[in-house]
């Protein structure tokens, strides 16, 4: 027993010293029904969450620093993940703009810029709020300045949704590609173990 305990301590001590790239949820969280659209007429609904791993990120297009950096790193992380998991387990990346007033006309171009398979959408306020709330995310549209320009605050973490359509984990900055890929690969192993039980 003591040996087992020692082994456990070692096992937990190692990840603790590495940078935290993600947090697995204790219990999977069901996602609500939602529908998002983009300027190409594509839609993204809760039915698109099933049969694949999905990473959902909330942001806005007038975000010069954090959003492009996050998507750039997610591109690298997903590319790393593709070296570790089966092709059909490589996560899809979906960007949801919480700023439809400014972004609706061009939103489809945004995520694609970072990877041709990344997709981006926006939607009605209640649709945005439904998924923001269900994923324990956050955003706030700030008061416009005299020129009408406004800032948007938003969660820096992104949500990982399993092929059963439930939220399983949150990924956090700095989204180190190798460590994020390792986290995602390990999470998929524990997901499959859980399914086979």
């Amino acid at each position: 027993m003591r040996h087992l305990l020692a082994a456990l301590i070692v096992a937990f001590a190692v990840p603790a010293t590495a940078q935290v790239q993600g947090v697995m949820l204790d219990e999977p969280v069901e996602m609500p029904a939602f529908v998002y659209t983009n300027d190409l007429g594509e839609t993204f609904t809760e039915r698109d969450l099933t049969d694949a791993w999905t990473i959902v990120m909330f942001g806005f297009l007038s975000c010069p620093d954090v959003c492009p950096f996050t998507l750039g790193n997610l591109e690298a992380a997903v590319s790393e993940t593709s070296l570790r998991v089966r092709p059909d387990n490589v996560p899809k990346v979906v960007f949801i703009s919480v700023d439809p007033d400014r972004d609706a006309e061009t939103v489809s171009e945004y995520a694609k810029f970072f990877h041709p398979d990344f997709r981006s959408f926006t939607g009605a306020r209640d649709q945005i709020d439904a998924l923001v709330e269900a994923t324990d995310s956050f955003y706030r549209i700030m008061t416009p300045d005299s020129s009408g320009y406004y800032e948007v605050q938003h969660s820096s973490s992104v949500s990982v949704i399993a092929p059963d359509g439930t939220l399983r984990a949150k990924l956090q900055p700095p989204f180190d590609p190798g460590q994020t890929a390792e986290f995602l690969a390990r999470m998929q192993i524990s997901y499959r173990k859980e399914l086979s039980q």
Binding site: D65, V66, S147, S157, Q172
Partner: peptide
């Protein structure tokens, strides 16, 4: 049209700019 000095910050998991 406009240029400003800005700073990104993150507090309690929320990204913001000022």
């Amino acid at each position: 049209a406009m240029a400003h000095i800005h700073e990104s910050t993150e507090k309690d998991g929320v990204a913001m700019m000022s």
